[in-house]
């Protein structure tokens, strides 16, 4: 995946001119077209500082050019640490952290998801929280003088059925 997404060669056939409009229609993606590629995002990005393979300016540029499949199938979009540094500093008001979220949400619909997120969705859908809590945990809490927490949350689980996300995620998972 990584090799494919960072390949320099672009062929016209793979460009989807509608991609940027699709992004800008989704909440958080509105301002993507204002990007003038100044690189303020990449300059302040703490992930990029450690590993140059993650480059928000490059991802936005690729999205604007319409290289849809490579962007959505790339592992790189999952590397945003959601620190909002770029988001705060973008001189063009591109909500970059939200744009990354839009791209990840779109990727899931195309059948691409990072396995750590599959796991998180499954856990929250099953238990209503990221960490399963049982009576043993509540005993521990009681010994500390802390009140018990619910071990299940059927309403939260139902939300995953209402939006259909659990089904979508398991479909993406079977594609892996």
């Amino acid at each position: 995946m990584l090799g494919k997404s960072t390949e320099a060669h672009i062929s016209f056939g793979e460009l989807d001119p509608q991609f940027k409009y699709e992004i800008s229609k989704l909440p958080g993606g509105e301002n993507i077209k204002y990007c003038f590629a100044c690189g303020t995002c990449s300059a302040g990005c703490p992930v990029r500082e450690i590993d140059e393979k993650y480059n928000p300016r490059r991802i936005i540029r690729m999205a604007l050019l319409g290289i849809k499949d490579r962007v959505l199938s790339s592992d790189l979009i999952w590397l945003c640490s959601t620190c909002y540094t770029c988001h705060e500093r973008c001189p063009q008001g591109v909500k970059i952290t939200e744009v990354m979220n839009v791209l990840k949400n779109m990727a899931v619909r195309e059948g691409y998801i990072h396995p750590s997120f599959t796991r998180q969705v499954e856990l929250i859908a099953a238990h209503g929280r990221l960490y399963e809590m049982d009576e043993f945990d509540n005993k521990k809490r009681e010994r500390m003088g802390l009140p018990p927490v619910a071990t299940k949350c059927p309403e939260a689980s139902e939300i995953f059925n209402i939006t259909g996300i659990l089904k979508l995620v398991s479909k993406s998972k079977s594609k892996e």
């Binding site: 979220n101 899931v108 998801i113 969705v121 990221l130 927490v149 619910a150 309403e155 939006t163 996300i165």
Partner: peptide, 27 residues
């Protein structure tokens, strides 16, 4: 006041589906 029925806020799901996050948070 402790509300036992609180669930996950929705943050971990935002990368996957913003709508699910919104419903979890709104609930």
């Amino acid at each position: 006041t402790d509300i036992m029925d609180f669930s996950c806020c929705g943050f971990p799901v935002k990368s996957v589906d913003v709508k699910t996050t919104m419903l979890l948070a709104a609930r």
